[in-house]
Design a protein around this nucleic acid. Structure first.
Length: 495
DNA sequence: CGCCGGCAATATAAATTGCCGGCGGTGCATTATT
Protein backbone atom coordinates (compact mmCIF):
# COMPACT_ATOMS: atom_id res chain seq x y z
CA UNK A 1 0.00 0.00 0.00
CA UNK A 2 1.46 3.40 -0.94
CA UNK A 3 1.55 6.48 1.25
CA UNK A 4 -1.55 8.01 -0.26
CA UNK A 5 -3.66 4.92 0.33
CA UNK A 6 -2.33 4.65 3.86
CA UNK A 7 -3.32 8.23 4.53
CA UNK A 8 -6.72 7.64 2.97
CA UNK A 9 -7.33 4.72 5.29
CA UNK A 10 -5.91 6.46 8.34
CA UNK A 11 -7.86 9.69 7.95
CA UNK A 12 -11.07 8.58 6.27
CA UNK A 13 -11.29 4.83 6.78
CA UNK A 14 -11.53 4.04 3.06
CA UNK A 15 -9.35 1.40 1.46
CA UNK A 16 -9.68 2.69 -2.11
CA UNK A 17 -10.26 5.91 -4.01
CA UNK A 18 -13.31 6.60 -6.13
CA UNK A 19 -12.74 7.05 -9.81
CA UNK A 20 -10.73 10.19 -10.58
CA UNK A 21 -9.96 11.18 -6.98
CA UNK A 22 -6.40 9.88 -6.91
CA UNK A 23 -5.28 11.79 -10.02
CA UNK A 24 -6.68 15.03 -8.66
CA UNK A 25 -5.04 14.55 -5.27
CA UNK A 26 -1.67 13.70 -6.82
CA UNK A 27 -1.89 16.69 -9.11
CA UNK A 28 -2.42 19.23 -6.33
CA UNK A 29 0.16 17.61 -4.04
CA UNK A 30 2.65 17.97 -6.89
CA UNK A 31 1.84 21.65 -6.80
CA UNK A 32 -0.07 21.86 -10.07
CA UNK A 33 -3.06 24.14 -10.53
CA UNK A 34 -5.89 21.77 -11.36
CA UNK A 35 -9.33 22.08 -12.92
CA UNK A 36 -11.25 18.91 -12.15
CA UNK A 37 -14.61 17.57 -13.11
CA UNK A 38 -16.03 14.69 -11.08
CA UNK A 39 -19.57 13.38 -11.34
CA UNK A 40 -22.11 14.33 -8.70
CA UNK A 41 -21.54 12.30 -5.57
CA UNK A 42 -18.04 11.39 -6.74
CA UNK A 43 -16.42 12.53 -3.50
CA UNK A 44 -15.13 15.97 -4.39
CA UNK A 45 -14.38 17.18 -0.87
CA UNK A 46 -11.89 14.38 -0.32
CA UNK A 47 -9.86 15.80 -3.22
CA UNK A 48 -8.77 18.77 -1.11
CA UNK A 49 -9.26 17.39 2.39
CA UNK A 50 -6.70 14.63 2.05
CA UNK A 51 -4.00 16.85 0.43
CA UNK A 52 -4.76 19.43 3.11
CA UNK A 53 -4.05 16.95 5.86
CA UNK A 54 -0.80 15.90 4.20
CA UNK A 55 0.51 19.43 3.66
CA UNK A 56 1.49 22.25 6.01
CA UNK A 57 -0.72 25.31 6.03
CA UNK A 58 -4.38 26.18 5.68
CA UNK A 59 -6.72 25.09 2.90
CA UNK A 60 -8.93 27.97 1.81
CA UNK A 61 -12.20 26.77 0.28
CA UNK A 62 -14.54 29.12 -1.58
CA UNK A 63 -18.09 27.81 -1.37
CA UNK A 64 -21.28 29.23 -2.92
CA UNK A 65 -23.79 28.58 -0.12
CA UNK A 66 -23.81 29.19 3.61
CA UNK A 67 -25.59 25.88 4.16
CA UNK A 68 -22.93 24.04 2.18
CA UNK A 69 -20.17 25.52 4.33
CA UNK A 70 -22.12 24.62 7.45
CA UNK A 71 -22.49 20.99 6.29
CA UNK A 72 -18.82 20.61 5.48
CA UNK A 73 -17.70 22.07 8.78
CA UNK A 74 -20.06 19.72 10.63
CA UNK A 75 -18.85 16.69 8.70
CA UNK A 76 -15.21 17.45 9.37
CA UNK A 77 -15.91 18.01 13.04
CA UNK A 78 -17.74 14.68 13.17
CA UNK A 79 -14.59 13.07 11.84
CA UNK A 80 -12.71 14.61 14.70
CA UNK A 81 -11.07 17.48 12.81
CA UNK A 82 -11.30 20.50 15.07
CA UNK A 83 -9.13 22.86 13.02
CA UNK A 84 -11.97 23.94 10.76
CA UNK A 85 -14.19 27.01 10.46
CA UNK A 86 -16.51 28.90 8.15
CA UNK A 87 -16.35 32.66 7.69
CA UNK A 88 -19.47 34.48 6.44
CA UNK A 89 -22.36 36.73 7.38
CA UNK A 90 -23.99 34.02 9.48
CA UNK A 91 -21.35 34.70 12.12
CA UNK A 92 -21.68 37.27 14.88
CA UNK A 93 -19.04 39.95 15.27
CA UNK A 94 -17.41 38.02 18.11
CA UNK A 95 -17.38 34.78 16.12
CA UNK A 96 -15.74 36.55 13.19
CA UNK A 97 -13.08 37.96 15.49
CA UNK A 98 -12.45 34.52 16.92
CA UNK A 99 -11.94 33.02 13.44
CA UNK A 100 -9.55 35.81 12.46
CA UNK A 101 -7.52 35.23 15.61
CA UNK A 102 -7.32 31.47 15.09
CA UNK A 103 -6.63 31.68 11.38
CA UNK A 104 -3.05 30.41 11.46
CA UNK A 105 -4.11 27.34 13.43
CA UNK A 106 -6.88 26.30 11.04
CA UNK A 107 -6.50 23.41 8.62
CA UNK A 108 -9.64 24.24 6.63
CA UNK A 109 -11.36 27.60 6.18
CA UNK A 110 -14.62 27.79 4.25
CA UNK A 111 -15.57 31.21 2.92
CA UNK A 112 -18.03 32.88 0.54
CA UNK A 113 -16.62 34.85 -2.41
CA UNK A 114 -18.24 37.94 -0.92
CA UNK A 115 -16.66 37.53 2.51
CA UNK A 116 -13.32 37.01 0.80
CA UNK A 117 -13.52 40.59 -0.45
CA UNK A 118 -13.16 41.93 3.08
CA UNK A 119 -9.91 43.91 3.48
CA UNK A 120 -9.46 42.66 7.00
CA UNK A 121 -9.78 39.03 5.99
CA UNK A 122 -7.44 39.44 3.04
CA UNK A 123 -4.76 41.00 5.25
CA UNK A 124 -4.95 38.17 7.72
CA UNK A 125 -4.83 35.59 4.95
CA UNK A 126 -1.71 37.24 3.52
CA UNK A 127 -0.01 36.66 6.86
CA UNK A 128 -0.57 32.92 7.00
CA UNK A 129 0.59 29.95 4.95
CA UNK A 130 -2.11 28.85 2.50
CA UNK A 131 -1.54 25.32 1.24
CA UNK A 132 -4.34 25.21 -1.34
CA UNK A 133 -6.89 27.62 -2.78
CA UNK A 134 -9.99 25.60 -3.60
CA UNK A 135 -13.07 26.72 -5.50
CA UNK A 136 -15.91 24.31 -4.91
CA UNK A 137 -18.80 24.18 -7.42
CA UNK A 138 -16.51 26.12 -9.72
CA UNK A 139 -19.09 26.38 -12.52
CA UNK A 140 -20.60 29.14 -10.36
CA UNK A 141 -17.67 31.34 -11.44
CA UNK A 142 -18.89 31.22 -15.01
CA UNK A 143 -22.58 30.90 -14.27
CA UNK A 144 -22.85 33.69 -11.67
CA UNK A 145 -19.58 35.59 -11.78
CA UNK A 146 -20.46 37.89 -14.66
CA UNK A 147 -23.67 39.36 -13.32
CA UNK A 148 -25.50 37.70 -10.43
CA UNK A 149 -22.59 37.40 -8.00
CA UNK A 150 -19.73 39.45 -9.48
CA UNK A 151 -17.48 38.71 -6.52
CA UNK A 152 -17.04 35.31 -8.11
CA UNK A 153 -15.21 36.94 -10.99
CA UNK A 154 -12.79 38.64 -8.60
CA UNK A 155 -11.38 35.39 -7.21
CA UNK A 156 -8.46 35.51 -9.65
CA UNK A 157 -7.43 38.88 -8.24
CA UNK A 158 -7.71 37.57 -4.68
CA UNK A 159 -5.59 34.57 -5.61
CA UNK A 160 -2.90 36.91 -6.93
CA UNK A 161 -2.94 38.96 -3.75
CA UNK A 162 -2.44 35.76 -1.79
CA UNK A 163 0.76 35.17 -3.76
CA UNK A 164 -0.81 32.55 -6.01
CA UNK A 165 -1.30 29.41 -3.93
CA UNK A 166 -1.85 26.07 -5.68
CA UNK A 167 -5.41 26.23 -6.93
CA UNK A 168 -8.03 23.54 -7.38
CA UNK A 169 -11.30 24.24 -9.18
CA UNK A 170 -13.91 21.51 -8.72
CA UNK A 171 -17.20 20.99 -10.52
CA UNK A 172 -19.52 18.26 -11.77
CA UNK A 173 -20.94 20.00 -14.81
CA UNK A 174 -19.12 22.21 -17.27
CA UNK A 175 -18.74 22.57 -21.00
CA UNK A 176 -15.36 23.23 -22.51
CA UNK A 177 -16.26 26.91 -22.77
CA UNK A 178 -17.19 27.00 -19.08
CA UNK A 179 -13.91 25.34 -18.11
CA UNK A 180 -12.02 27.92 -20.15
CA UNK A 181 -13.98 30.70 -18.48
CA UNK A 182 -13.13 29.28 -15.06
CA UNK A 183 -9.42 29.13 -15.95
CA UNK A 184 -9.41 32.64 -17.34
CA UNK A 185 -11.19 34.19 -14.37
CA UNK A 186 -8.98 32.35 -11.87
CA UNK A 187 -5.80 33.02 -13.84
CA UNK A 188 -4.90 29.35 -14.31
CA UNK A 189 -2.93 29.42 -17.55
CA UNK A 190 -0.85 26.35 -16.72
CA UNK A 191 -3.57 24.28 -15.14
CA UNK A 192 -3.94 20.55 -15.56
CA UNK A 193 -7.41 19.47 -16.64
CA UNK A 194 -8.78 16.27 -15.17
CA UNK A 195 -12.12 15.78 -16.82
CA UNK A 196 -14.64 13.08 -16.18
CA UNK A 197 -17.71 12.40 -18.32
CA UNK A 198 -20.90 14.25 -17.41
CA UNK A 199 -22.89 11.20 -18.48
CA UNK A 200 -24.94 9.35 -15.90
CA UNK A 201 -25.81 6.07 -17.58
CA UNK A 202 -28.17 4.93 -14.83
CA UNK A 203 -30.47 7.88 -15.53
CA UNK A 204 -32.82 7.24 -18.45
CA UNK A 205 -33.79 10.34 -20.40
CA UNK A 206 -37.44 10.70 -21.33
CA UNK A 207 -39.14 13.54 -23.21
CA UNK A 208 -42.88 14.02 -23.57
CA UNK A 209 -44.55 16.63 -25.69
CA UNK A 210 -48.02 17.90 -24.77
CA UNK A 211 -50.35 20.57 -26.15
CA UNK A 212 -50.49 23.12 -23.35
CA UNK A 213 -49.99 23.81 -19.66
CA UNK A 214 -53.32 22.28 -18.61
CA UNK A 215 -52.38 18.99 -20.23
CA UNK A 216 -48.94 19.23 -18.69
CA UNK A 217 -50.38 19.57 -15.22
CA UNK A 218 -52.64 16.59 -15.79
CA UNK A 219 -49.81 14.49 -17.12
CA UNK A 220 -47.57 15.48 -14.23
CA UNK A 221 -50.12 14.25 -11.70
CA UNK A 222 -50.41 10.93 -13.55
CA UNK A 223 -46.67 10.52 -13.66
CA UNK A 224 -45.95 11.22 -10.02
CA UNK A 225 -48.80 8.95 -8.98
CA UNK A 226 -47.29 6.04 -10.88
CA UNK A 227 -43.54 6.58 -10.64
CA UNK A 228 -41.34 5.07 -8.02
CA UNK A 229 -40.23 7.90 -5.76
CA UNK A 230 -38.78 9.80 -4.15
CA UNK A 231 -38.68 12.47 -6.82
CA UNK A 232 -38.17 16.10 -7.73
CA UNK A 233 -40.23 18.36 -9.97
CA UNK A 234 -38.36 21.39 -11.31
CA UNK A 235 -40.74 24.31 -11.95
CA UNK A 236 -40.18 27.58 -13.83
CA UNK A 237 -41.35 29.97 -11.09
CA UNK A 238 -41.97 30.08 -7.36
CA UNK A 239 -45.67 30.31 -7.93
CA UNK A 240 -45.71 27.17 -10.08
CA UNK A 241 -43.75 25.25 -7.48
CA UNK A 242 -46.39 26.03 -4.86
CA UNK A 243 -49.29 25.53 -7.23
CA UNK A 244 -48.13 22.15 -8.48
CA UNK A 245 -47.40 20.93 -4.96
CA UNK A 246 -51.01 21.83 -4.08
CA UNK A 247 -52.42 20.06 -7.11
CA UNK A 248 -50.44 16.91 -6.42
CA UNK A 249 -51.46 16.90 -2.77
CA UNK A 250 -55.12 17.17 -3.82
CA UNK A 251 -54.94 14.62 -6.62
CA UNK A 252 -52.80 11.92 -5.02
CA UNK A 253 -51.92 10.50 -1.62
CA UNK A 254 -48.32 11.56 -1.97
CA UNK A 255 -46.58 13.61 0.67
CA UNK A 256 -45.55 16.65 -1.34
CA UNK A 257 -43.55 19.73 -0.42
CA UNK A 258 -42.40 22.81 -2.28
CA UNK A 259 -39.13 24.70 -2.16
CA UNK A 260 -37.94 28.02 -3.59
CA UNK A 261 -35.72 30.98 -2.82
CA UNK A 262 -38.57 33.14 -1.53
CA UNK A 263 -39.09 30.98 1.54
CA UNK A 264 -37.76 31.51 5.05
CA UNK A 265 -34.43 29.80 5.67
CA UNK A 266 -36.01 27.65 8.37
CA UNK A 267 -38.76 26.40 6.05
CA UNK A 268 -36.23 25.63 3.35
CA UNK A 269 -34.13 23.64 5.76
CA UNK A 270 -37.19 21.75 7.01
CA UNK A 271 -38.33 20.69 3.53
CA UNK A 272 -34.84 19.64 2.57
CA UNK A 273 -34.45 17.56 5.74
CA UNK A 274 -37.88 15.97 5.37
CA UNK A 275 -37.06 15.02 1.81
CA UNK A 276 -33.69 13.55 2.75
CA UNK A 277 -35.29 11.53 5.56
CA UNK A 278 -38.02 10.19 3.28
CA UNK A 279 -40.77 12.02 5.11
CA UNK A 280 -41.74 13.55 1.75
CA UNK A 281 -42.30 11.62 -1.47
CA UNK A 282 -41.56 14.53 -3.73
CA UNK A 283 -40.65 18.21 -3.77
CA UNK A 284 -41.79 20.76 -6.36
CA UNK A 285 -39.01 23.31 -6.57
CA UNK A 286 -37.31 26.05 -8.56
CA UNK A 287 -33.65 25.89 -9.51
CA UNK A 288 -32.90 27.00 -5.93
CA UNK A 289 -33.09 23.38 -4.83
CA UNK A 290 -30.31 20.90 -5.08
CA UNK A 291 -26.80 22.14 -4.43
CA UNK A 292 -25.53 20.26 -1.42
CA UNK A 293 -28.56 17.99 -1.20
CA UNK A 294 -26.81 14.69 -0.76
CA UNK A 295 -29.67 12.21 -1.14
CA UNK A 296 -28.63 8.96 -2.78
CA UNK A 297 -31.99 7.44 -3.72
CA UNK A 298 -33.85 10.09 -5.73
CA UNK A 299 -35.57 7.97 -8.40
CA UNK A 300 -36.96 10.59 -10.76
CA UNK A 301 -36.49 14.23 -11.74
CA UNK A 302 -39.25 15.83 -13.79
CA UNK A 303 -38.81 19.14 -15.58
CA UNK A 304 -42.11 20.97 -15.90
CA UNK A 305 -40.45 23.42 -18.27
CA UNK A 306 -37.29 23.82 -20.30
CA UNK A 307 -34.39 24.69 -18.05
CA UNK A 308 -32.33 27.69 -19.13
CA UNK A 309 -29.25 25.75 -20.20
CA UNK A 310 -28.05 22.22 -20.85
CA UNK A 311 -25.67 22.63 -17.92
CA UNK A 312 -28.57 23.44 -15.61
CA UNK A 313 -30.43 20.42 -16.96
CA UNK A 314 -27.50 18.09 -16.28
CA UNK A 315 -27.02 19.51 -12.80
CA UNK A 316 -30.68 19.06 -11.99
CA UNK A 317 -31.18 15.55 -13.36
CA UNK A 318 -27.87 14.65 -11.70
CA UNK A 319 -29.67 14.75 -8.38
CA UNK A 320 -31.30 11.46 -9.32
CA UNK A 321 -29.71 8.05 -8.85
CA UNK A 322 -26.57 8.93 -6.96
CA UNK A 323 -26.70 5.42 -5.51
CA UNK A 324 -26.15 4.14 -9.04
CA UNK A 325 -29.58 2.51 -9.22
CA UNK A 326 -32.04 2.85 -12.07
CA UNK A 327 -33.53 6.35 -12.24
CA UNK A 328 -35.32 8.52 -14.76
CA UNK A 329 -35.40 12.12 -15.97
CA UNK A 330 -38.59 13.30 -17.61
CA UNK A 331 -38.81 16.53 -19.58
CA UNK A 332 -42.34 17.81 -20.21
CA UNK A 333 -42.50 20.05 -23.24
CA UNK A 334 -45.22 22.23 -24.71
CA UNK A 335 -45.26 24.92 -27.42
CA UNK A 336 -44.34 28.30 -26.00
CA UNK A 337 -42.13 26.86 -23.25
CA UNK A 338 -39.26 29.12 -24.13
CA UNK A 339 -41.15 32.33 -23.48
CA UNK A 340 -40.71 32.46 -19.72
CA UNK A 341 -36.99 31.83 -19.89
CA UNK A 342 -36.50 34.20 -22.79
CA UNK A 343 -38.32 36.97 -21.00
CA UNK A 344 -36.32 36.45 -17.83
CA UNK A 345 -33.18 36.94 -19.88
CA UNK A 346 -34.56 39.92 -21.81
CA UNK A 347 -35.80 41.87 -18.80
CA UNK A 348 -32.61 41.34 -16.86
CA UNK A 349 -30.36 42.91 -19.48
CA UNK A 350 -30.00 46.68 -19.64
CA UNK A 351 -30.35 48.42 -23.01
CA UNK A 352 -28.09 51.19 -24.34
CA UNK A 353 -30.84 53.59 -23.45
CA UNK A 354 -30.94 52.36 -19.83
CA UNK A 355 -27.18 52.63 -19.58
CA UNK A 356 -27.18 56.21 -20.95
CA UNK A 357 -29.87 57.12 -18.46
CA UNK A 358 -27.80 55.69 -15.58
CA UNK A 359 -24.70 57.54 -16.75
CA UNK A 360 -26.64 60.80 -16.66
CA UNK A 361 -27.84 60.13 -13.15
CA UNK A 362 -24.35 59.19 -12.05
CA UNK A 363 -22.69 62.37 -13.31
CA UNK A 364 -21.05 63.91 -10.27
CA UNK A 365 -21.39 60.82 -8.11
CA UNK A 366 -17.95 59.95 -6.80
CA UNK A 367 -18.02 57.43 -4.01
CA UNK A 368 -19.19 53.83 -3.72
CA UNK A 369 -22.12 54.69 -1.49
CA UNK A 370 -23.45 57.34 -3.86
CA UNK A 371 -23.28 54.82 -6.67
CA UNK A 372 -25.28 52.26 -4.75
CA UNK A 373 -27.88 54.79 -3.65
CA UNK A 374 -28.34 56.19 -7.13
CA UNK A 375 -28.77 52.75 -8.61
CA UNK A 376 -31.26 51.82 -5.94
CA UNK A 377 -33.35 54.87 -6.78
CA UNK A 378 -33.32 54.11 -10.49
CA UNK A 379 -35.85 51.31 -10.34
CA UNK A 380 -33.41 48.53 -11.17
CA UNK A 381 -33.70 45.07 -9.75
CA UNK A 382 -31.03 44.08 -7.30
CA UNK A 383 -29.34 41.89 -9.89
CA UNK A 384 -29.38 44.61 -12.54
CA UNK A 385 -27.96 47.13 -10.11
CA UNK A 386 -25.16 44.80 -9.07
CA UNK A 387 -24.29 43.84 -12.60
CA UNK A 388 -24.18 47.45 -13.72
CA UNK A 389 -22.24 48.62 -10.66
CA UNK A 390 -19.65 45.92 -11.28
CA UNK A 391 -19.11 47.03 -14.88
CA UNK A 392 -19.27 50.72 -14.03
CA UNK A 393 -16.53 50.44 -11.42
CA UNK A 394 -14.45 48.39 -13.84
CA UNK A 395 -14.73 50.68 -16.85
CA UNK A 396 -15.55 54.17 -15.62
CA UNK A 397 -11.95 55.41 -15.82
CA UNK A 398 -12.16 54.91 -19.60
CA UNK A 399 -14.88 57.55 -20.00
CA UNK A 400 -16.99 57.16 -23.11
CA UNK A 401 -14.99 54.19 -24.24
CA UNK A 402 -15.87 52.56 -20.94
CA UNK A 403 -19.51 53.12 -21.67
CA UNK A 404 -19.07 51.36 -24.99
CA UNK A 405 -17.55 48.43 -23.12
CA UNK A 406 -20.59 48.26 -20.87
CA UNK A 407 -22.99 48.29 -23.86
CA UNK A 408 -21.04 45.44 -25.40
CA UNK A 409 -20.68 43.42 -22.24
CA UNK A 410 -24.41 43.67 -21.43
CA UNK A 411 -25.34 42.66 -24.92
CA UNK A 412 -22.80 39.85 -25.01
CA UNK A 413 -24.11 38.31 -21.79
CA UNK A 414 -27.67 38.53 -23.02
CA UNK A 415 -26.85 36.95 -26.36
CA UNK A 416 -24.86 34.23 -24.68
CA UNK A 417 -27.73 33.36 -22.37
CA UNK A 418 -30.21 33.37 -25.22
CA UNK A 419 -28.02 31.14 -27.33
CA UNK A 420 -27.46 28.70 -24.47
CA UNK A 421 -31.19 28.54 -23.98
CA UNK A 422 -31.76 28.00 -27.71
CA UNK A 423 -29.04 25.39 -27.63
CA UNK A 424 -30.84 23.27 -25.10
CA UNK A 425 -34.22 23.78 -26.77
CA UNK A 426 -32.62 22.54 -29.96
CA UNK A 427 -31.15 19.43 -28.33
CA UNK A 428 -34.52 18.64 -26.76
CA UNK A 429 -36.34 19.10 -30.08
CA UNK A 430 -34.01 16.80 -31.98
CA UNK A 431 -35.45 13.48 -33.10
CA UNK A 432 -32.19 11.60 -32.63
CA UNK A 433 -30.75 10.14 -29.44
CA UNK A 434 -31.25 12.70 -26.67
CA UNK A 435 -28.24 11.51 -24.69
CA UNK A 436 -26.02 11.77 -27.73
CA UNK A 437 -27.20 15.33 -28.30
CA UNK A 438 -26.57 16.32 -24.71
CA UNK A 439 -23.13 14.73 -24.59
CA UNK A 440 -22.18 16.34 -27.87
CA UNK A 441 -22.94 19.69 -26.26
CA UNK A 442 -20.34 18.78 -23.64
CA UNK A 443 -17.94 17.69 -26.39
CA UNK A 444 -18.31 14.05 -25.58
CA UNK A 445 -18.95 11.19 -27.87
CA UNK A 446 -21.61 8.84 -26.64
CA UNK A 447 -20.36 5.55 -25.31
CA UNK A 448 -21.67 2.22 -26.68
CA UNK A 449 -25.40 2.04 -26.44
CA UNK A 450 -26.81 0.93 -23.16
CA UNK A 451 -30.50 0.34 -22.77
CA UNK A 452 -32.50 2.00 -21.53
CA UNK A 453 -31.08 5.24 -22.90
CA UNK A 454 -33.74 7.71 -23.92
CA UNK A 455 -37.17 8.13 -25.49
CA UNK A 456 -35.75 7.95 -28.99
CA UNK A 457 -33.69 4.84 -28.30
CA UNK A 458 -36.62 3.06 -26.69
CA UNK A 459 -37.51 2.96 -23.05
CA UNK A 460 -40.45 1.68 -21.01
CA UNK A 461 -41.95 4.01 -18.45
CA UNK A 462 -43.45 0.97 -16.75
CA UNK A 463 -39.98 -0.01 -15.56
CA UNK A 464 -39.92 3.10 -13.42
CA UNK A 465 -43.30 2.70 -11.77
CA UNK A 466 -43.73 1.98 -8.10
CA UNK A 467 -44.57 -1.51 -7.01
CA UNK A 468 -46.79 -1.73 -3.98
CA UNK A 469 -47.50 0.83 -1.32
CA UNK A 470 -44.31 2.79 -1.15
CA UNK A 471 -45.22 5.39 1.49
CA UNK A 472 -45.08 2.66 4.13
CA UNK A 473 -41.81 1.37 2.73
CA UNK A 474 -40.46 4.87 2.99
CA UNK A 475 -41.31 5.13 6.64
CA UNK A 476 -39.38 1.95 7.29
CA UNK A 477 -36.45 3.33 5.38
CA UNK A 478 -36.60 6.53 7.41
CA UNK A 479 -36.40 4.47 10.57
CA UNK A 480 -33.42 2.51 9.37
CA UNK A 481 -31.66 5.66 8.28
CA UNK A 482 -32.17 7.29 11.62
CA UNK A 483 -30.67 4.26 13.34
CA UNK A 484 -27.76 4.34 10.93
CA UNK A 485 -27.19 7.97 11.70
CA UNK A 486 -27.11 7.32 15.44
CA UNK A 487 -24.56 4.56 14.91
CA UNK A 488 -22.54 6.66 12.53
CA UNK A 489 -22.33 9.43 15.09
CA UNK A 490 -21.27 7.18 17.96
CA UNK A 491 -18.73 5.43 15.73
CA UNK A 492 -17.18 8.76 14.95
CA UNK A 493 -17.01 9.73 18.57
CA UNK A 494 -15.16 6.56 19.46
CA UNK A 495 -12.54 7.20 16.75
C1' DC B 1 -44.81 36.76 -23.52
C1' DG B 2 -48.50 35.21 -20.26
C1' DC B 3 -50.34 35.62 -15.81
C1' DC B 4 -52.13 37.94 -11.81
C1' DG B 5 -53.75 41.50 -8.69
C1' DG B 6 -56.04 45.79 -8.35
C1' DC B 7 -59.33 48.76 -9.65
C1' DA B 8 -63.25 50.83 -12.13
C1' DA B 9 -67.30 50.17 -14.62
C1' DT B 10 -71.47 47.89 -15.08
C1' DA B 11 -76.06 47.73 -13.47
C1' DT B 12 -78.96 47.92 -9.77
C1' DA B 13 -76.61 45.00 -4.78
C1' DA B 14 -73.58 41.02 -5.01
C1' DA B 15 -70.95 39.63 -8.55
C1' DT B 16 -69.00 39.68 -13.20
C1' DT B 17 -66.22 41.88 -16.89
C1' DG B 18 -62.41 44.18 -18.67
C1' DC B 19 -58.44 47.05 -18.75
C1' DC B 20 -53.84 48.41 -16.95
C1' DG B 21 -49.45 47.71 -15.00
C1' DG B 22 -46.04 44.93 -13.02
C1' DC B 23 -43.70 40.80 -12.53
C1' DG B 24 -41.13 36.48 -13.40
C1' DG B 25 -34.73 32.54 -11.01
C1' DT B 26 -30.40 31.67 -8.73
C1' DG B 27 -27.58 34.18 -2.86
C1' DC B 28 -24.28 36.53 -0.90
C1' DA B 29 -24.63 40.61 2.44
C1' DT B 30 -27.49 44.27 5.00
C1' DT B 31 -22.58 49.15 9.53
C1' DA B 32 -28.36 52.73 9.35
C1' DT B 33 -33.40 53.94 11.01
C1' DT B 34 -38.15 53.30 13.26
Amino acid sequence: MDKLHQALYRHFGYSSFKKGQEDIIKSVIEGRDTVAMLPTGGGKSLCYQLPGLLTDGTVLIVSPLLSLMEDQVQQLKMRGEKRVAAYNSALTYQEKEAVLKQLHRLKFLYISPEALQSEQMLKRLQAINISFFVVDEAHCISQWGHDFRPDYSKLGEIKKQLAGPVTLALTATATEATLKDISRLLGLEEARYLIHSVDRPNIALHIEEVQDTAEKTKRLTELVRKLQGPGLVYCPTRKWAEELADRITEGTRLRTGFYHGGMEAGDRMLIQQQFIRNQLDLVCCTNAFGMGVDKPDVRYVIHFNLPQTAEAFMQEIGRAGRDGNRSISILLKAPGDKEIQEQLIQTEALSRHDIDFLYEKLAGVRDERGLKETLQQSGLTETQARHFAHLYVKFRHLGNKGREHIYQEMDFRKQQKLSKMEGFAHIAANKGCFREGLLAYFNERRKPRKTPCCTHCGLHLKDYEAKGDHPIMNQLTAWEEELDMIFAVSRDHVC
